[in-house]
Design a protein around this nucleic acid. Structure first.
Lengths: 234, 234
DNA sequence: TCGGCGAGGTGGTCGGACCACTATGCGTCA
DNA sequence: TGACGCATAGTGGTCCGACCACCTCGCCGA
């Protein structure tokens, strides 16, 4: 029969998710725009409010929609940060060999981003990088060091001018991920080495040397990567 | 008061999501393991089944959980493919400048993956690559060409030995994404050029030349990237 | 004119009911 | 004795109706 009015593909909720995604993809829903109410949406697609709520919740965690209590449901700006926030979940839940793979991806992207940053970074951004570099050496509080370490790399990724790449790197360096690696890494006394590597990255940025920046960033991440690799295999 | 029995952070559903994620992160829930029923879970966390269902649905679309009708809820294998499936959503919903950024990310990762593949690819895998290369030139059906194009790159990404990287590339090359770019790209008559680029990639793989492979892959993606860039700017 | 307050509308939560599907075990049949 | 098939209990999927917490906006009064 091929009754197009009732595709009947999978669950009702899944269908709702696809429909809303399609509406956005086709441009019928613009970023920032407000959607009809849950009750109306459910009625339009011929389903219960419960099922529609599950669909909305799903798209909310994906960073596509945003629900404001008492106000309505809105399409996010669909920027890299919104959509790639879920990338952090991957890092949080990965273990063993997958962590090494993630670090390998990060090494590739981080070295490229750092190289791009060397060519494009502004004086203000460079000053910001220096600030975090100094702050990292000025304290012994691991919590604070980690915060400045993350900010150091985030500033560089931003300076590279590719928001999407920066968002992915942000996810790959999520708090839990870094903290977990740090805990064991510091015990090996490889603390001074990290400081030296950061200094090398900064030097390359200051001299606007993309190749040196790429090498320094790759070595920095690769250092952790290699250590983690030895911790797993015999 | 700081009553630790009622954190009251955000919505009930959001709390449930965090709790379940934490259980998996702490290893209290192993991959493949079956969870209690929705009704039991809701009772354990002191909430209604509706709210718990929304949390489960959210974790399902993230690729963390898998619900089997009539059987139960299970933790996925938490492999790269499971978790990074949502990456395709980003590509599907991105427009304008963000598409260029995504292609830039893909260029970086694809060139690295291709270089790695040149060093690690097996005879069987190389034969598979050749099969798709030949099939691509043997037909005029755009649909079929696209399918073999995707398979061509997927085979190479797999041969690189980094499942995580392969999964990300899979998401970046999702059907909709490629189809959208193709539509306009083909009109420019840049069809033979694509075939030549694919042949160059294959040649580099066959001769186990990582540097040539990296260059060929970067040029291949960069080609589309450049074209897309001109379509946007003035 | 401006401020505050109230009503209506919105998402958030809850409980219960029923349906669709799966899995298991028991009984039956060859 | 064995395997097959069916009944059944248990699971996720859907729907409904109600109520709550919160936001918005317009009305009313100072």
């Amino acid at each position: 029969m091929d009754d197009e009015t009732a595709p009947q593909k999978g669950t009702v909720t899944q269908r709702a998710i696809e429909r809303i995604k399609a509406m956005i993809g086709e441009g019928r829903l613009e970023p920032g725009q407000r959607l009809p109410t849950e009750r109306d949406l459910a009625a339009q697609l011929g389903m219960s409010r419960s099922s529609m709520r599950e669909a909305i919740r799903a798209l909310t965690v994906l960073g596509v929609l945003e629900a404001r209590h008492g106000s309505g449901i809105y399409v996010t700006q669909l920027e890299a940060g919104d959509l790639l926030e879920t990338f952090g979940v991957v890092a949080d839940l990965s273990r063993g060999p997958r962590l090494v793979e993630l670090l390998e991806v990060r090494r590739v992207l981080e070295s490229t981003a750092t190289a791009l940053a060397a060519a494009r970074i502004t004086a203000d951004q460079l000053a910001e990088v220096e600030k975090h570099l100094a702050a990292m050496s000025a304290t012994d509080d691991p919590e604070e060091i980690l915060a400045h370490d993350l900010a150091f790399h985030r500033e560089i990724a931003t300076a590279a001018g590719n928001e999407t790449m920066a968002a992915i790197l942000e996810g790959l360096s999520s708090r839990t991920f870094r903290a977990r690696v740090w805990r064991g890494y510091q015990e090996e006394g490889a603390f001074a080495r990290t400081r030296r590597e950061h200094a090398a990255i900064h030097r390359a940025l200051a001299t606007r040397d993309p190749e040196a920046a790429r090498a320094a960033a790759a070595a920095h991440v690769g250092e952790v990567e290699e250590w983690l690799r030895t911790q797993l295999g015999p």
